[in-house]
Nucleic acid binder design. Structure first.
Length: 420
RNA sequence: GCGGGAGUAGCUCAGUUGGUUAGAGCGCCAGGUUGUGGCCCUGGAGGUCGUGGGUUCAAAUCCCAUUUCUCGCCCCA
């Protein structure tokens, strides 16, 4: 039983029984994107390492310890994409999409790679569905992206989730908050965990959402961004909240919410599901108004959202949501004996040529065994062809749900099935 | 990187204080219908008990190592 090879740690095979669900969710996502005006973009699976190192932030967990890096023979450093936004921005800049349209709205379905210890809902290779909007700082767009996300979750069957919302300011107002935070923490540095003492030096904002109890206790009254944001950010955030309220999208303000990458500005949000164990974040996103410029494009405000498809499906499973998967609705052709088999090959070929999904047996089984296979495949009709049928140039057609059976001329088969 | 749990048939698992040919349910195959699915009945195939070593007359069972999976911490989707 122990096969010689297994899928590498943190990866897994998605078998046909599961891919149906994946395709369904992806199609809901694509439909939703069409409704909101997002068009698909596909970027390479790997990018230059520098793209991620410089733009996600060197101190982030992803960059400092979770990237799949490799070198080409020529010594170029490449990395399997650990997130979807930076590559999308890179493509936007590479092709100067800002010159084509004032506002560009794109979506992607991409495999993401992070070298972490796998556990429930966390894989080294996972799939993210995401959208990005370039070219406007209108808070209505923040609300649109968030409502897109919330709408998508509901559409696919998840109505139990919490939307956490925060603003993390901009380069104008962040330094002031940072200074206040450092001042506040300085005297309590001893109470913090080792990681946070390190963060104090390298990435103070991240101390705020540390999960360590001692840190949470020590930082209860720490200065939060919302009290330090500049007028523009405060105004922007107020409008986002107003839009969401108007759209009847419930949210919870979380002034300790900090996103994992350095490029975020202003609006930050996260969707949390209680159905998953430790990995409860099913999606998240935020604004990144300076990233396009940092990557080399013209100053262009932008906002995006990404969700983990693997986790979404786990959540749907945990919630026992029944997805409306389409039955196969195909025709199975059962041939009896050698002549019947030959006739079946011809019949299947003819059905397919006319756009009717059809399949047959290739293992020389008895009619009974072929019927069982047809049943298991969920065939709607079974066409039976034996010596009797061949002699009269007819086929026997069995409706698998009603068990009704009738004989009809071979020449009428395709038309009859198409009319059903 | 750190900590817990588990590896017995395709799947989910049982296996009593170590003791003959290692079991069940589901699935699979065949028969019960000389050409007919779902339900039912009967039979069958399928396992070097993760791997290596040790203890013992005897190991799926005890000990050690190793490996894989899994859950959690950190962090994220």
């Amino acid at each position: 039983m122990m096969a010689e090879y297994a899928a590498p740690r943190g990866t897994r095979d998605i078998l046909p029984a599961e891919t149906q669900k994946w395709q369904y969710v992806e199609s809901v996502f694509r439909d939703m994107c069409a409704l909101y005006g997002f068009e698909e973009i596909r970027t390479p699976t790997f990018e230059h390492t520098e793209l991620f190192v410089r733009n996600l932030g060197e101190t982030t967990d992803v960059v400092s310890k979770e990237m799949y890096n490799f070198e080409t023979k020529g010594g170029r450093k490449l990395t399997l994409r650990p997130e979807g936004t930076a590559p999308t921005v890179r493509a936007y800049v590479t092709h100067n999409l800002g010159a084509v349209l004032p506002v560009n709205k794109v979506y992607y379905i991409a495999r993401i790679f992070r070298f972490e210890r796998p556990q429930a809902g966390r894989y080294r290779e996972h799939t993210q569905l995401g959208v990005e909007v370039f070219g406007s700082i209108d808070p209505a767009l923040d609300a649109e992206v968030i409502s897109f996300a919330a709408g998508f979750f509901r559409e696919v069957g998840i109505d139990q989730f919490e939307l956490k919302l925060n603003t993390i300011g901009c380069p104008k107002c962040r330094p002031e908050h940072r200074k206040a935070l450092l001042d506040f923490v300085e005297s309590r540095l001893g109470d913090l965990c080792e990681t946070c003492r390190d963060r104090y030096e390298r990435n103070p904002l991240r101390m705020l959402d540390c999960k360590e109890e001692r840190c949470q206790a020590a930082l209860t009254d720490a200065p939060v961004m919302i009290d330090y944001v500049c007028e523009e950010c405060r105004d922007h955030f107020a409008k986002v909240r107003a839009y969401l309220t108007e759209m009847a999208i419930p949210f919870v303000l979380d002034n300790k919410l900090v996103r994992g990458f350095d490029y975020y500005t202003k609006t930050a949000f996260e969707f949390v599901s209680g159905e998953l164990g430790a990995q409860n974040a099913i999606g998240g996103g935020g604004r990144y108004d300076n990233l396009v410029e940092e990557i080399g494009g013209a100053p262009t405000p932008a906002i995006g959202f990404g969700l983990g498809l693997d986790r979404l499906l786990l959540t749907l499973d945990a919630m026992q949501v029944q997805l409306p998967l389409q039955p196969r609705n195909a025709v199975f052709v059962a041939g009896l004996g050698e002549a019947g088999h030959e006739a079946a090959v011809k019949t299947v070929c003819g059905l397919r040529k006319n756009g009717v999904a059809a399949d047959m047996d290739y293992t020389g089984r008895s009619l009974k065994a072929q019927m069982k296979v047809a049943n298991k495949l969920g065939a709607r009709f079974v066409v039976i062809i034996g010596d009797d049928e061949i002699a009269g140039d007819t086929v026997t057609l069995r409706d698998m749900s009603s068990s009704e059976q009738k004989s009809l001329p071979t020449s009428e088969l395709v038309e009859y099935i198409k009319s059903r």
